[in-house]
Nucleic acid binder design. Structure first.
Lengths: 167, 167
DNA sequence: CTCCTATGTTGACAGTGTCAAGCAGTGGTG
DNA sequence: CACCACTGCTTGACACTGTCAACATAGGAG
């Protein structure tokens, strides 16, 4: 985790983590299958944090509509505050959605369920969840990449979501 | 280009392109400042293609509302059909939005203007463009990463966009 | 005690980005 | 013509990386 706080996944080297742990350059191979194994663990932990943030935001919301916007805001906030963790979660060379790890699979399911239940409770149809996920994912990604500020992203998210909600 | 058709940016090595061009391992340094310079050029060309695809889609649409959905569909389609090109465009280690290259800057401006004009013509407020960009960007990214099919992404995009449009 | 497993070690290999120095043409200038 | 700058390329080196193989060591299970 602290690794991803400072460096992107692509810049993390096994030999460097070995040096940081004050062990030989090959010790990590007894804890991870290879470099991708390390990144997979980091991705799983990051995903757990992301899901937890969204879960908390939704569960403490005052009404169904703000549960959607608050959950979305938490998603965007995570992407911006932990850009490297967010990246590695969705890195197709690390986690292949078709064959997710045993740790990752339930987290993805929970994320989809959280967004789905909140959206349906707010009056959206089941199928529209994809749009909600896509919206906050895109805003989070673009914002983390520096294309606009967090405030703009959160405002755009809230604006788009209330437009999408019926009524 | 052909490079990105097969390999991700992170897997492209300068020495490999040198071998492919049948020159010495250091020849590329006379054409690019360094590895990042190569990726920058690839990103610029990819961005030009993406913008062209969106421009074409919007200009050939029959009415304002479908200009927005068609432009969004073109964006998503590009992300899915050229995932490596799409990735490198938004790779913060390649293109830093704060200080874009002279080639990249006008392309970003054009993309924003295309989306902006189409959205406003369809009745959206200027500020909502961020939401449109975020939506199609997120759907394209998630779809390219394999989290759902292109058809689902296009359907979700159209669904969300018509919900966002007034009236 | 013996054996196995987990964890660590050193040593080696190919591949990479990058720097430095030098070489061969080519085009323009005096 | 001679000269010079320059562009494109070359070879050679360096530190770094992921990964494999072989070996050491400790601690618990039988």
């Amino acid at each position: 985790m602290h690794l991803l706080a400072e460096k992107a996944a692509g810049e993390i080297s096994l030999r460097e983590v070995a040096r940081a742990a004050d062990v030989s350059h090959n010790a990590p191979y007894h804890h991870f299958s290879d470099r991708r194994g390390l990144l997979k663990v980091l991705a799983e932990r990051s995903m757990a944090d992301l899901v937890a943030a969204v879960r908390d935001a939704i569960s403490t919301a005052s009404d169904p509509a703000s549960a959607v916007t608050d959950g979305g805001a938490a998603y965007i906030r995570y992407a911006v505050e932990h850009p490297h963790g967010f990246d590695v979660i969705y890195d197709p060379t690390v986690c292949i959605p078709g064959e997710p790890s045993e740790t990752m699979a339930p987290l993805i399911v929970e994320l989809e369920q959280l967004l789905s239940e909140a959206s349906v409770a707010a009056g959206l149809e089941e199928q529209s969840v994809t749009g909600v996920w896509g919206l906050v994912h895109g805003l989070g990604t673009l914002c983390a990449a520096g294309h606009f500020t967090l405030d703009d992203a959160l405002a755009a998210s809230a604006d788009a979501l209330v437009r999408m909600l019926p009524g």
